[in-house]
């Protein structure tokens, strides 16, 4: 048995588990994209970043690949983690703005702008399809090619592969090319349409996650918001009355 601390909570786990496994077991939410239970770990999307170690020597690691160690101190919702996560979402959004999954993530984490050139490439190189093909379908029909900015996923020689059985597993797991964002501003920038449909706390708890662990549903922040605006109106009215008098 290993004992470690996640968000100040002392948790126990067995050897060989990753931080993500432990957090999931204890019900702590860590967002993921390139992680899939049935596939090997890749650590490519960097959404599952957590901060480990104690101040001032902390570092960010991907929780889906980092093994749980004895005495490890993990924090999943520090400012640094959330900022890094937002940046990753922003970068992925600039590559594949048409993806519903990525637009949803942007809404959920309050990413409201994309400061990078929109590229519409519809592939974020998460490698899910490659792993799906090789590990679950035993196909090995697609893989990574080239490197750097030319890196892409394709079949050998970009033609129909002899190994491919057209099972469609690669499309099934793809977060970028299958589900399309249906919002009004999809394909251009941050859509955030889903964001306005739901009451959320994002205006009030932008930097840190909601302390109620149930973002927006409790309605506290909306009440706060309306009360605040009411108060403002009231003070404005009283000021106007004073002026008139």
């Amino acid at each position: 048995m290993i004992t470690l601390k996640i968000n100040g909570l002392e948790v126990k786990t067995e050897e060989g588990q990753t931080i993500l496994d432990v957090a999931k077991f204890y019900g702590l939410e860590i967002p993921t994209l390139c992680y899939n239970e049935g596939l090997s770990r890749y650590g490519g999307c960097r959404l599952c970043l957590v901060e480990i170690g104690e101040e001032p020597k902390t570092k960010l690691v991907s929780s889906c690949t980092y093994p749980a160690e004895e005495g490890l101190v993990v924090r999943t919702d520090t400012k640094r983690v959330i900022e890094a996560r937002k940046m990753m979402i922003e970068l992925m959004l600039s590559v594949a703005p048409g993806s519903k999954i990525i637009q949803d993530l942007a809404s959920k984490f309050g990413v409201k702008q994309v400061r990078f050139k929109i590229r519409n490439e519809e592939c974020i190189l998460c490698g899910l399809c490659v792993r799906m093909c090789a590990e679950q379908m035993d196909g090995r029909a697609i893989g990574f090619q080239n490197r750097g900015y030319k890196r892409k996923i394709s079949t050998p020689f970009d033609t129909r592969s002899e190994e491919c059985r057209l099972c469609g597993g690669c499309i099934y797991v793809c977060p970028a090319c299958q589900l399309r964002c249906q919002g009004p501003d999809a394909d251009t920038a941050v859509c955030n349409a889903c964001l306005t449909m739901d009451p959320t706390c994002l205006d009030f708890h932008d930097e840190l996650q909601c302390w109620m662990y149930d973002v927006g549903r409790c309605g506290t922040c909306i009440r706060e918001k309306t009360e605040e605006s009411n108060n403002k109106k009231r003070t404005q009215k009283s000021k106007q009355k004073e002026k008139n008098a």
Partner: peptide, 25 residues
């Protein structure tokens, strides 16, 4: 050449796509 890569893939037992990955890297 494509044909040669296919021969290498078969002889070594490495999937063709992995050889392409190395060759394009």
């Amino acid at each position: 050449p494509q044909e040669v890569l296919k021969i290498v893939s078969k002889a070594l037992g490495i999937p063709l796509i992995d050889i392409i990955g190395v060759a394009t890297f």
